[in-house]
Amino acid sequence: MSEDVKSPSTLPAFLSLFTSTGTLVCCALPALLVSIGAGAVMAGLIEAVPQITWLGRNKTLVFSIAAVMIALAGAWQWHARSLPCPIDPVKARACTRARQLSWIVWWVSVVAFLVGGFFAFFAASLLG
């Protein structure tokens, strides 16, 4: 009987990615579409998914939740780095790969959060 090995650190990493993606949708995506002259696409997107405007109006809440999730996921990643992996070589490799994937996902989350934060709070004042 073969069991899949999942690192307990993958869930927090993917939750942080999910929340940081929300920061991109709220702030970076509209700025990108408008800056490349796709305002009509943005208007159509808002008509199809009006919740995007809620994200933009509540960007402080969105960023706060994302920051908390990224911090918790980072703390869990740090904690899980020293947890033992199984002795079985196949399961040990799977455990190691899952930990590496979790760190990659976490760093992608951090970058997405920073890009979203730039567009939400700094780009408007810098670009005009």
Rank of each mutant, 00 (worst) to 15 (best):
M1F: 15
M1L: 14
S2K: 11
E3G: 12
K6L: 11
K6P: 04
S7I: 01
S7M: 02
S9T: 08
T10N: 07
T10W: 10
P12T: 00
P12D: 00
A13C: 03
F14I: 08
F14K: 12
F14R: 11
L15E: 08
F18P: 00
F18R: 08
F18M: 07
F18C: 09
T19M: 07
S20C: 02
T21W: 06
G22P: 09
T23F: 00
L24I: 12
V25K: 01
C26K: 07
C26Y: 03
C27K: 06
C27G: 05
C27D: 15
A28N: 03
L29Y: 00
L29D: 00
L29N: 01
P30C: 02
P30S: 07
L32P: 10
L32K: 08
V34K: 12
V34H: 13
V34E: 14
S35V: 08
S35M: 04
S35R: 14
S35E: 09
G37R: 03
G37P: 07
G37S: 05
A38Y: 06
G39M: 05
G39W: 08
A40W: 13
A40K: 14
A43Y: 04
A43N: 13
L45Q: 04
L45D: 05
L45W: 09
I46S: 10
I46H: 10
A48T: 05
A48G: 10
V49R: 09
P50C: 04
P50E: 07
Q51I: 13
I52E: 02
T53N: 12
L55M: 08
R57S: 13
R57K: 12
N58G: 02
T60R: 07
T60I: 15
V62N: 04
F63I: 02
S64E: 04
S64F: 10
S64Q: 09
I65W: 01
I65D: 00
A67D: 05
A67P: 03
V68Q: 03
I70M: 03
I70N: 02
A71W: 01
A71F: 10
A71R: 06
L72A: 15
A75S: 11
A75E: 10
W76D: 06
W76F: 15
Q77W: 13
Q77F: 10
H79A: 14
H79R: 13
H79G: 00
P84Y: 02
C85L: 13
P86E: 03
P86M: 07
I87W: 11
I87H: 15
I87D: 15
D88N: 12
P89V: 02
P89F: 06
V90W: 09
K91Y: 06
K91I: 00
A92S: 15
A92C: 11
R93A: 14
T96P: 01
T96Q: 14
R97W: 14
R97D: 08
A98P: 00
A98Q: 04
R99K: 09
R99V: 04
Q100K: 14
Q100S: 13
L101N: 04
L101I: 04
S102P: 02
W103Y: 02
V105T: 05
W106V: 07
V108D: 00
V108R: 02
V108S: 05
V108E: 00
V108Q: 05
V108M: 04
A112I: 03
A112R: 03
F113G: 03
L114D: 06
L114P: 01
V115R: 01
V115E: 00
F118W: 13
F118T: 03
F118L: 08
F119Q: 04
A120F: 06
F121G: 11
A124M: 07
S125E: 15
S125Q: 15
L127F: 14
